[in-house]
Design a binder for these strands. Sequence first.
DNA 1: TCTGGGGTCCTCTCTCAA
DNA 2: TCTGTTGAGAGAGGACCC
Length: 434
Amino acid sequence: VRVPPPAGRQRRILHVDMDAFFASVEVLDQPSLAGKAVVVGGTGPRGVVASCTYQARVAGVRSAMPMARARRLCPQAVFLPGRYDRYVEASRQLGALLESVTPLVEPVGLDEAFLDVSGAERLLGPAPRIAQWLRQRVGEELSLSCSVGVASSKLVAKLASEEAKPRATPTGPEPGPGVVVVEAGGEIDFLHPLPVERLPGVGPATGRRLRSMGVLTVGDLAQVPRQALVSALGKALGNHLHQLAWAQDGHPVEPAVAAKSVSHEETYAEDLVSGDRLGRQLVRLADAVAWRLRCQGRAGRTVTLKVRFADFATVTRSRTLSRPTDAAPLIADAACQLLEQVEVSRGVRLLGVAVSGLSPARLEGPQLPLSGPSGWDRASPAVEAVRQRFGPSALGPARLLDSGAGLDLKRRGEAQWGPDRRVVKPSKVRENGS
DNA sequence: TCTGGGGTCCTCTCTCAA
DNA sequence: TCTGTTGAGAGAGGACCC
């Protein structure tokens, strides 16, 4: 439900952003880590940093950095594999707290959210006071810290929360202001001195293009005629950035919308070349995608295979089915057929399976025979029921049976930041595939 | 140096039908 | 019947976000 802002009044938007979220949760659960450099992420050779404490940032460690580089920069740090489920739990606690302020909460990932508090001000006081009070409650009830930006739009509130954050300086971490308020009318003065890369939508590629045009700050960007931006960056991005440079952002705070695709992908510690191992991984990924689709009561028509090679080149191949499915064998079949279109002999570093074109799963309609592909539409809910009753590994594709170890299933959050340091077992699938 | 996983959106190209 | 135009949809790739 979209609630329009009160007529004739400025919107008051809060952007709440947790400080070093995953790393802070680890410190919370292991108090002996307090004050130390802690790096969370994929601990294996191909892992990346998901989050790190400000002590690690002082040494130059940043999120999304290859873990190998983080180890070189900060060898004294404590390196921990991520615990995705634990962060989801902490994120739910945060969400409940935010929704006690207003129902107009738009989560962004696990660790940040926008709140439209325009309607809550009469009850709770002015937006800056709500921001201070929220910070205090996050500290008292979750034992975590966050930074909050307050402004009249999502764009400026988000940039303001970045200004509110702690800083990693050469002499050590320094606390930030915690809350930064940009008053209505002050948006341009706040925005224009900022580096243009701070605008959402300006990543490395667009940043390079803008710098080549002599655009270094948001103020520089504002001086470029809109048509010139459209010519250089394309219609959508050119118009978008021109509006942002003039603080024109009317996007409302929208509570979570349903995802448009569901995917699973995995980078392997060693490149795969054997057709059997690739096929088995596709079955595993398809099973995980199908399981999540059924949990959401949805089905999809388009199956996309993603393959990343040893040299990091990436290709995708997709196929649209005649009707939506949430059945793992059908998704796996489509993915395996797509894999036949790809030359894999140079080694595969990553495989991914996605399903898009989603619609609600249909349970009504004529019952189809169990034999043949469409029979899986009836079998899949039964698989789901068994898993709900006896656990996820109670039932699964025979091809994923690993002798002695049960079913080798993939779960969301597993290897979220790359393969970890666990020893990789050689594949023990039975030769006859049973 | 050596680059994750789960997403969204945009652009370009191709095909097909009207 | 043939040709050219146009628009929709599918497929592929890239950029970006957290």
